[in-house]
C-alpha cells in the first residue's frame, strides 16, 4: 500500500517498514536531480517534519517524512547516482523507516486523493 503527503513524498508500506521517496510528479517538476541530502541510519524522523533535501540544477526542496520512526537504511545508490530518482522515483526510494505509529498512515493521502493534488498544481 502506498500513501502520499501533499508535499509529494510517498511512503510505501511493507509490514512495519515505510519506504520513503518522492512521487513521479515531483521528480518531473524538479528536473534533473543532482543531489539527495539524506539523514543517517538510526536517526529519528517525525511525521510532517523535514528529513533531508533534494536538489536539481535550478531548484531544491526539503523532504518531509510521511511517518515517524527510525531510519533503518538509506538508499546509498542515490549518493553516487541521484539521477535514478528521475528514472524511476517509485523504485528508487530514499530512506527506509521503521514506523513507530502505523496509525499515522490514516492522516496521509490515498493515491487517488494525491492525484487530485497534482492535477490542481498543474494549473
Amino acid at each position: 500500500m502506498t500513501y502520499f503527503l501533499p508535499s509529494h513524498e510517498y511512503a510505501r508500506i511493507e509490514d512495519n517498514l515505510a519506504y520513503i521517496g518522492i512521487s513521479k510528479f515531483a521528480a518531473e517538476q524538479l528536473g534533473n536531480v543532482v543531489y539527495v541530502d539524506m539523514p543517517e541510519v538510526d536517526d529519528e524522523v517525525v511525521a510532517g517534519e523535514e528529513f533531508g533535501a533534494i536538489e536539481s540544477v535550478k531548484a531544491a526542496s526539503d523532504l518531509f517524512s510521511p511517518v515517524s520512526g527510525t531510519v533503518v537504511e538509506i538508499n546509498e545508490e542515490l549518493l553516487d547516482n541521484p539521477k535514478l530518482v528521475n528514472e524511476d522515483p517509485e523504485k528508487h526510494w530514499i530512506i527506509k523507516v521503521e514506523m513507530r505509529d502505523p496509525s499515522e498512515l490514516e492522516k496521509l493521502l490515498s493515491p487517488e486523493a494525491y492525484a487530485k493534488v497534482c492535477e490542481a498544481e498543474k494549473h
Binding site: V34, Y35, E55, V57, K58, A59, A60, D62
Partner: peptide, 12 residues
C-alpha cells in the same frame, strides 16, 4: 551548486 542559494531557496 546554486540550489543552496537565496535566489532559489529564499528563506531556506
Amino acid at each position: 551548486l546554486q540550489a543552496r542559494e537565496q535566489h532559489i531557496r529564499r528563506e531556506k
